[in-house]
Amino acid sequence: MPVRSLPARAALVVAAALLLGGTGLFLAALFLHVAPPNSVSKEYQRQIDAVVFPEFEQNWKLFAPDPLQQNVTVDARVQTIADDGAVTTRDWIGLTAQDIAAVRGNPAPSHTEQNLLRRAWDFYDATHPAQEGAVAGPRGKLAELYLKRIALQRIGRTAHGERILQIQFRSGSATVPPPAWSTEQVSTEAVHRELPWWPVNDEDYRGLR
């Protein structure tokens, strides 16, 4: 068996210590993420979120699976303005349909294709009261910007050669039907929600590729 030099052994020891330390910190972050709120998780919430999100996010409570209960679709359409000032409302674009098409038949779909749009809509829905005229707080404004930028990244700066002036979203949500053997009876009729038009400017594209 070859005998390693002292520097080589020292390098191996340091590498092993770093790996063990990193693994321990990673497991500790995951544990604090799923554990009930406590003083440590509250103090280091930002660092814990940076480790867990988005690759290791869990959509379940500890020992209590919480699968999605609804099928939600999100569509968007834009208004464009021509050089002569004419404004045109374009057809709806199925953003969720795009994600489904990218995932279907793909043995290893990306996290963004599966969850980015869905979580963005969940964020918006959770921060915007259903009452007409209700004003969203700072998190609500962030949710609006997040949803808008996801759509604009897909659509681009122009549509049919014309500059995008405004964007609008609509959603449809329907309860997942129970299995055939279940006696549970739920309504599977889709509920639709249409948002107002949001103006689009150059700042909305900042940092988008």
Rank of each mutant, 00 (worst) to 15 (best):
A8L: 14
V13N: 09
V14T: 13
A16D: 15
G22C: 14
T23Q: 14
G24H: 09
L27T: 09
A28N: 10
P37G: 13
S41F: 15
K42L: 13
Q47A: 15
A50F: 10
E55D: 14
E57H: 08
Q58Y: 06
Q58T: 10
N59A: 12
L62P: 11
A64P: 14
A64D: 15
D66G: 13
N71Q: 00
V72N: 02
V74M: 05
V78T: 07
I81P: 00
I81R: 04
D83G: 05
G85D: 08
R90I: 00
W92A: 00
L95F: 01
L95M: 02
T96A: 04
T96L: 00
T96P: 04
A97M: 08
A97F: 06
Q98P: 06
D99M: 00
D99R: 04
I100C: 00
A102H: 12
A102M: 15
N115I: 11
N115Q: 03
N115F: 02
L116G: 03
L116I: 11
W121N: 00
D122W: 00
F123T: 05
D125M: 03
D125R: 05
A126C: 08
T127C: 11
P129D: 01
G133D: 04
A134W: 05
P138A: 11
K141F: 09
Y146I: 04
K148L: 13
R149N: 02
R149Q: 12
A151V: 08
L152Y: 07
L152H: 04
Q153C: 13
G156M: 06
A159F: 12
G161K: 08
Q168S: 10
R170I: 11
P177E: 06
P178C: 09
W181M: 12
W181C: 10
S182D: 12
S187F: 11
T188L: 02
T188K: 03
H192N: 11
E194R: 12
W198I: 10
V200E: 09
